[in-house]
């Protein structure tokens, strides 16, 4: 409820700002609306971004519940995508279903490993996870650059990307796209399913409970014999897995190759997605849609208006986000609601 109010407030603020710049606010609203709902293709593109944001949001959220801050979803998703993109190039002769499974396993393992490192360093020596994951992001970016440009570069194109995978490795060999000829693919359904599974895992299982008790009071967890070091590592590995699923969406589900810069900070946006939802998976569904909507909408603003540049579109994004977060996180009561949620 408060979130919606914040959204309207932020949007209103942005509209005032654009009208100061001489744009017609109604026109801006139209562009925003059209950018998501005008055509099936627009909606599909939004859902595609949303899928990736759900995965990174969940990745940050699982660490968040354990009292850890995963800034490294970006690196984890890069490593995961790299694994998937090169799987088919390493063993090109595999047949279904082993080909797809191999791609999945390699990607998830790399992503999970990238999560394991900060988890292990944290629980073994207390290495601060924020620093470690941030550094690992740079390392991952370096590794990915090397493999894409120097080892597996697709010679047929000018842009830095890997040689495309054959059909056997792709998600589309099992499923038909939800909307044919659009980026969105079956990963979207996985993402939504994951949100519900995540909910069950966190709030209805022993492991989830232990995870949260480690996050809320590590001292008490220690006193009562919760294996908190193990839990911290497991949380980070799971975070790595979840982030790596972005690769399923992007590489196995859509393009079939790893293109440098495809992520455009999906991992960092995941932090915002998770924080806005306070780590709750159902909230993540909503906040990831909001983010995808803003990303897509501001791109179109750049294209379709004179005054609003790409940079200014970012201002609008930030305004809306800040007001949503401000409205949801500050303790105040809405008139007419008993306990504001």
């Amino acid at each position: 409820m408060k979130g919606l109010l914040g959204f309207i407030f932020g949007l209103g603020l942005s509209l005032i700002l654009v009208s100061v710049l001489g744009e017609n606010p109604i026109h801006i609203l139209q562009i925003f609306y059209n950018s998501v709902f005008a055509t099936q293709y627009d909606l599909a593109t939004t859902l595609f971004t949303m899928t990736s944001l759900i995965f990174t949001g969940l990745s940050v959220a699982v660490a968040f519940h354990a009292g850890l801050f995963n800034i490294g979803a970006e690196g984890q998703l890069l490593m995961g995508s790299l694994g998937m993109a090169i799987s088919g190039l390493l063993l090109p002769n595999l047949i279904l279903p082993y080909s797809f499974l191999w791609a999945l396993v390699l990607g998830l393992c790399l992503g999970g490993f990238w999560g394991f490192i900060p988890g292990y360093l944290k629980s073994r020596w207390g290495g601060h996870e924020v620093i470690v994951t941030m550094m690992l992001n740079f390392i991952a970016a370096g590794i990915v650059n090397y493999f894409v440009i120097d080892v597996f570069q697709n010679r047929e194109v000018q842009t830095p990307e890997t040689i495309p995978l054959t059909k056997e490795f792709l998600l589309s060999s099992f499923t038909h796209g939800i909307f044919p000829r659009t980026p969105v693919n079956a990963s979207f359904l996985f993402a939504v399913l994951f949100c519900f599974l995540f909910y069950v895992l966190i709030y209805h299982t022993r492991w989830g409970f232990q995870l949260r008790s480690v996050g809320k009071n590590p001292e008490a967890s220690k006193f009562y014999g919760v294996p908190y070091q193990k839990i911290q590592i497991q949380a980070f590995v799971l975070a790595g897995f979840l982030a790596a699923f972005v690769g399923v969406n992007e590489v196995l589900g859509f393009s079939g190759r790893l293109r440098l810069g495809f992520s455009s900070d999906l991992g960092f946006l995941g932090v915002a997605v998770a924080m806005m939802a306070s780590g709750h998976p159902i909230g993540i569904l909503a906040s990831s849609f909001l983010f995808a909507f803003l990303l897509k909408g501001s791109l179109d603003l750049d294209l379709e208006t004179q005054t609003i540049t790409k940079d200014f579109a970012r201002v609008i994004q930030a305004l809306v986000l800040l007001s949503v977060i401000g409205f949801t996180q500050f303790p105040f009561k809405l008139p007419g609601f008993k306990s504001g949620k």
């Binding site: 022993r206 409970f209 949260r212 008790s213 809320k216 009071n217 001292e219 008490a220 967890s221 220690k222 006193f223 009562y224 014999g225 919760v226």
Partner: peptide, 18 residues
């Protein structure tokens, strides 16, 4: 307060601890 309870969590969750 420090070791025994998760103050922000409800009674059920605290019962689950240990």
């Amino acid at each position: 307060l420090k070791q025994g309870l998760i103050l922000s969590a409800d009674v059920i969750e605290n019962a689950l601890l240990a």
